[in-house]
Design a protein around this nucleic acid. Structure first.
Lengths: 74, 74
DNA sequence: GTACATTTGTTCGTATGTATA
DNA sequence: GTATACATACGAACAAATGTA
């Protein structure tokens, strides 16, 4: 057994939505509260996933603004 | 050998920082997350240490606020 | 200028599972 | 079996910043 933590699964899901183009560069992804409801997970799990996305360089978070998809070169 | 549990060592360290005056009365000590990172231990260990400090009467914890150094008579 | 809603940031409380000694 | 230690996950409350009406 090699269980994958929920927040990692969520980060991978969100990454897929970014790389697919569903969430476009320079635009915000849904808010933490929105993702929380959409996936039925806790806010802490959402924040852990988004932290991973930041560490992967996919997004940048601005307090009281939102989390934005990073500009990527193709 | 008389091994001392990690959370007890941590409690003693924090107590020293309180009695030395580094953490002053009526002021909060660093958050659980901060101590966790500072000492590289898990949150459970931090909480066990703080629970000891409470039992020793050195601090009082307020949910969602922080853990405060108790007023001491000299 | 004020009030309100939205959003992220922070903090402690609780529970569960895994691993180790 | 018990105690320790870590990681994960959910909940709740409060704070701060931003934007808008």
């Amino acid at each position: 057994m090699s269980p994958v933590a929920l927040y990692i699964q969520l980060a991978d899901l969100l990454e897929a939505r970014i790389t697919s183009g569903e969430f476009a560069p320079r635009k915000p992804i849904p808010s933490e509260a929105h993702i929380e409801q959409e996936y039925g997970v806790s806010r802490g799990t959402v924040r852990a996933a988004i932290r991973l996305l930041r560490e992967r360089g996919l997004v940048a978070t601005m307090p009281a603004r939102g989390t934005y998809v990073t500009e990527r070169k193709s």
